[in-house]
Structure formats: structure tokens, C-alpha cells
Write a protein that binds this DNA or RNA. Structure first.
Lengths: 158, 158
DNA sequence: GCTTGATCTAAAGTTAACTTTAGATATTAA
DNA sequence: TTAATATCTAAAGTTAACTTTAGATCAAGC
């Protein structure tokens, strides 16, 4: 295989629409691979653009950087990821997306059933499978559990 | 209407599964209404349980507290929200859920089409409508725009 | 060779969303 | 009434995810 062309940090920043400081931050955090020029500047394989874009998408899905780092660890650091590498990662990711869609769909149904109508009964309102396995933000945030959602949907019962 | 029974901060905390400090924090931030006893302790209408639960659900959907405060502003502060009050809020919220589901579905389709298969062409991969109107975290986080996602999905093109 | 712009490091600053602490008062239960 | 428990305030601390700053070096074009 031909060696992949290396690009500067500014190039990555521009191509992904981010600040240079963010790319440097990700590099320091070990989220994206880089090597140094003889002068000490970082250079990146072009494929890092994909990696950064993946990070942004995953963040949008409420993954923490720690979780993303873990996800990305299935990609090789020492060579450019192949189609197969990305496909493997994609499979895991896809399952998370599906779970998230299912959770939202369930939440929507519950809201419609419980708030939209005049329903006041716990029996009809109780959620079954609304847990969101994906979202979780480090310290403060908790996963919503069934308990919480039930209370939201049922608390009008005196 | 019979006056709604008032409950303590500890009661709200326990019922919603949160720390007392969080309930106090929300009260201070104006996210939930409260009044004081003669001694200075906060007391809440029971309906605040719903409100807190709503906050947790909305946070799980990546709303910031500022956005949630805005959403909740359609609920009356001076009286217990009626079914109709919640239904109105629910309508807005429901639309956001639908948008989010649509965005995730689109992302999923794109991932399957672009990464799962051997597709390398920009034409077949480009996303059209994946913007997520809901998520946005104050300072650091950006909305994913079409640009970023395209780059992720297409960057293997040399 | 020189100037200009890009990049470097290390450390400090920022924001959101909380929690923790300390010391004081309120409330409840015996 | 008294002890135990709950709550209060104000201020400081915490964590994640960044950005900003300052002063120095690198790299590119003329």
C-alpha cells in the first residue's frame, strides 16, 4: 500500500470545521493518532478526518469522550483503517442508534398515551422499555430509569 | 379546587430519585416553583414531581437547563398544571422527539449505506437531512452539520 | 535571509450542571 | 423538652470538554 499522505493540524481543523485547539486536544487525549515532524509539529494521516467526524457524531449521540475513545479503540492506530475496520465499528454503533430510536419511540408513545389524552391510570401509563442504554454524562447526569419516567407520567394520580 | 398538598424537599428528592441538593439547585434556578414555611424551609406542590421528571427526560434528550426552563415556562407557576397545560407542552416536546428520531434514522441509513458496504462515491453517500435541531450543549458542543457528516462518510475518497 | 503565518507547550480560564462543606436553624418524634 | 433528623445559606469544589494566553519555535514564500 502507498503510504498515506500526512496533513497538518490546521488542515484537519478546517476540513472538520473545528478549532485547531480542539484537534490538538483530541490528539493529546489519545482520540486521534499523530506523529511529529523533525521540528516537533504534529502531522496526521488523512483518515483522521473520518475519525474526528465520527467523534462529533458520537458526541451528538451523548457519548462521552471516554466512551468514544473506547469505541475507537477497535480501529488500528498504526495504520489507516480499512473499510472492514470501519464496518466493524459501525455495527456496534448502529446497534446503539437502534436502541436510542427505540427508546425515543417508546417515550413518544408514552407521552402521547399519558399526557395527550385524559388518561390518569397507572396501569395504562406505565412504561416498560424506555431505558436509554446509550446516554450517560460523566458526573452529574443519571440514566433515566423506568421509575423516573413512570413518576412523570403518572404523578397526576392523587 | 382543593388546595394542593405541599411536600418537603426531601420528599421530592426521594420520589424523583435525586439528591436534595439537586432539587434545591433547580428551585434556585427557577426551574421548579416553591414557597417557604414560616421557618424558611421550602415546600413544593406535589406536581413538582412531574416537573422534575420532565426535566430529567428532557436532559436525556440533550436539552440544556436553559432550554428546559424555556420549555417549562409554558406551564403556570402559580397553580398546579392541568392536563391541558401538560398536553400543550407535550405537543412541542413530541415534535422534538420526532425530529430526533428522524435524524437518527437518517444517520443509521447513511452509516449502513456508506460504511457497511463498499461504497466510495460521494454521490451515493451524501446526507440530505440529518441535522439535529434538538441537541446543543452550551459552550463546547456544536450541532452536527451536513458538512461534518458528509466528511465522515465520504473521506475515504482520495 | 527574512518575514509572516502556523504550530508548539504549559498553564490557566470557562461553562454547565452539579455536589460538598460548614455552621446555623427548623422540624419531628419520643 | 430534648434529641435526632431535616433543611437552610453561601461559598467553594468538581468534572467534562474545551478555549485562551503567552512566549517560543517552525515552515513557507519571496
Amino acid at each position: 500500500m502507498a503510504p498515506e499522505p500526512m496533513v497538518s493540524i490546521g488542515f484537519i481543523a478546517k476540513r472538520t470545521g473545528n478549532a485547531v485547539s480542539l484537534i490538538r486536544y483530541y490528539a493529546n487525549e489519545g482520540l486521534i493518532p499523530s506523529v511529529r515532524t523533525s521540528g516537533g509539529n504534529r502531522v496526521f494521516p488523512r483518515s483522521v478526518i473520518r475519525r474526528v467526524s465520527f467523534i462529533l457524531i458520537a458526541q451528538n449521540m451523548s457519548y462521552s469522550l471516554a466512551q468514544i475513545k473506547h469505541l475507537l479503540s477497535t480501529l488500528p492506530d498504526n495504520r489507516t483503517p480499512t473499510q472492514a475496520d470501519w464496518a466493524k465499528l459501525s455495527t456496534v454503533f448502529n446497534r446503539h442508534i437502534e436502541e436510542k430510536i427505540a427508546a425515543l419511540t417508546s417515550l413518544k408513545t408514552s407521552l402521547e398515551g399519558c399526557i395527550g389524552c385524559g388518561c390518569l391510570s397507572l396501569e395504562r401509563c406505565r412504561l416498560y422499555n424506555t431505558n436509554d442504554k446509550v446516554a450517560a454524562r460523566g458526573s452529574g447526569a443519571q440514566l433515566l430509569d423506568e421509575n423516573v419516567q413512570s413518576q412523570f407520567l403518572v404523578s397526576h394520580k392523587k
